[in-house]
Structures are given as structure tokens and as C-alpha cells.
Design a protein around this nucleic acid. Structure first.
Lengths: 145, 145
DNA sequence: GTAATTTTGATGCAATCGCATCTTTTGTCA
DNA sequence: TGACAAAAGATGCGATTGCATCAAAATTAC
């Protein structure tokens, strides 16, 4: 089953790790410098906003954002402390929760978008040519579950 | 300068972050389960081994591995505690150091390679087609400094 | 030559992560 | 039904990260 990986594979692997770290770090740093929370907060809020009734269960958020269970649990702690989201009882499963979008969450989403977009544009999008975003997307799709 | 990013860019961005996290996490988890240290230790040892006299300065390691200064400083702490590398005085710059590869470091490199290779193969390389590794490499190169 | 600036590396402290485990509730199957 | 396994979330604790800052040496400027 195994054998030897070719040099191309190893190099692609190394570049994936390095490039992502480099770009994500630049974006996070830029957002933080402007007083914004980390990108994952934005992503989470966006998922909630896109959801049918502006709420999702943690399990669903885990799957969409690919977060680990304990990680998400703590992100929600912090966002709840900032009144961005609220934990509500889930009516159909007593084990579960609804994570609901609060007004302040919607407001942050709006306020953060220009900065987030600019950061992604500067540190990521601008470095690729026109068709390359889709090309990269297609390749990364194969790596996703 | 700015304007609006197209949906393709945003999606590619999101996939880059998610896919990398997903794959790196799987590889790290697998190595850890077999009792090995994190991949960055391997990468660092490999850089040292490839270096002319099996030693490099922290600044050089930072640049090659794209690590932050304080991060690298602490990684070296841990690796030094395990006798994998040693901090030596740098003869040409009294501020600096030589990080030297120790025998145990070389041994770990050898011992770890099969596991590392297998993990990368399983969680990354196997998911891409023959030419796609190079294709991905080329795209990621544009994101690197 | 000396003062100001930059570079290199370390570290205190607070925030975050990762693992393992716990509680509660659901689902399965005899 | 009743026992047993699986799923959803929370959390204690130790390890790691990130920021800010420090000290020491090299470089630059005057």
C-alpha cells in the first residue's frame, strides 16, 4: 500500500502547510491590528446568518467549519460572552443546542466584512491570476472530506 | 485598489484554510499516535541535516520554515531538552547561534521518516492525481514570500 | 569614535489548544 | 422494556501560542 512518495508530493505537502500558515497569519494579524476578532468568528457568524432561521447546532457548525468539538465549544463561550451569539435549548434533542445569531453578531458581520475582504484580497487573492482561484479550489476540494 | 472580491476567491480562501487544517491535523494526529513529535520537528531536523555542516542559525531556520521568532525559540528549547539539537555559539556573530544536529536528532530523522511519509501519503498525496501535486505546488508558490 | 538604529534571540504572562474524561440524552437490539 | 453502545456538549489540566518587551551585539549615521 505504501512505497515511496515522490519528491513532488513532499514538496506540495510542505508548500501547502507553509503557504497556508503564511497567508492565514497575515490575514489574522491584519484583522487583529484593526481591533477585530479572528476570522473563524466571522465564518461562524456567516454560517449562522446563512442558516434558515439564523441558528445552527454545534454539530452542524463543527462539520461546516471543520472545527474540533472542544474547540468550537470554547469559541462559542467567547462569542457568547460578547453577546454575538446565544445558546438556546434545542427542542428536538435535549442533548443539543441551538446557537443563535444575536443582533450584535449581525452587526459585527457587516462591520467586519470590508476589513476581512481587504485582507484576503491583499494577502491571498491578489497573488493568484484570474483562473487560478478556481483551479486551486478544485485541487483543494480533493483534500476535503 | 480594493473593490469586491469575487465568490471564487473567497471560496478558494476558505478551502485553503479548511483543507490545510484538516490534512495537517490528520498527519499530526497519526504521528502523535505512534509516539512521534510534531512534523515541524522533522522539518527542522531535515533542514539541519541538509545544511553544509549540519548546523544553521535560528534566523535561517525561521526563513526556511516560516516560523515566528518566538515560536522557533521555543521549539529549539524542547528539542534541545531531548538532546536532538544543541545551541552552540556562533563564531562570526556574537548575537547569534548555531543550531547543531546531534546524533539523536539524526536517528529520529531516520526513524520518523517511514511514519511521516506514510501519513502524508495517506492523508494528502493519495487524494491527488499524478500531475496534480505539481499543479498544486505551482499555485502555492505564488502565495509564498 | 560615539550615539542612534537595527538585528538576533530569550522570556513573562495571558490566551488558546489538545487530550482525556464526564454528564446527559438517544439510539440499538435482544 | 432494559441493558448497552453511541452521540452531543462541557470542562479540568497541562502544553503551546502570541504579544510585548528585554538584553546584547552589530550596523549605520553623524
Amino acid at each position: 500500500m505504501s512505497g515511496v512518495l515522490c519528491a513532488n508530493s513532499i514538496q506540495a505537502w510542505a508548500k501547502l502547510v507553509r503557504a497556508e500558515a503564511c497567508v492565514l497569519d497575515a490575514v489574522e494579524r491584519e484583522l487583529r491590528a484593526e481591533g477585530f476578532p479572528p476570522p473563524i468568528w466571522y465564518d461562524l457568524l456567516l454560517e449562522l446568518k446563512a442558516a434558515p432561521e439564523h441558528h445552527l447546532r454545534p454539530v452542524e457548525l463543527e462539520a461546516r467549519l471543520l472545527l474540533k468539538q472542544y474547540h468550537l465549544s470554547r469559541v462559542i463561550d467567547r462569542m457568547e460572552a460578547e453577546q454575538l451569539v446565544a445558546r438556546r435549548k434545542c427542542p428536538t434533542d435535549a442533548r443539543g443546542l441551538h446557537i443563535a445569531l444575536l443582533p450584535a453578531g449581525g452587526a459585527l458581520l457587516k462591520k467586519m466584512w470590508p476589513a476581512y475582504q481587504a485582507a484576503i484580497g491583499r494577502h491571498f487573492a491578489a497573488k493568484l491570476g484570474p483562473g487560478e482561484h478556481q483551479q486551486l479550489s478544485a485541487l483543494l476540494d480533493k483534500l476535503l472530506p
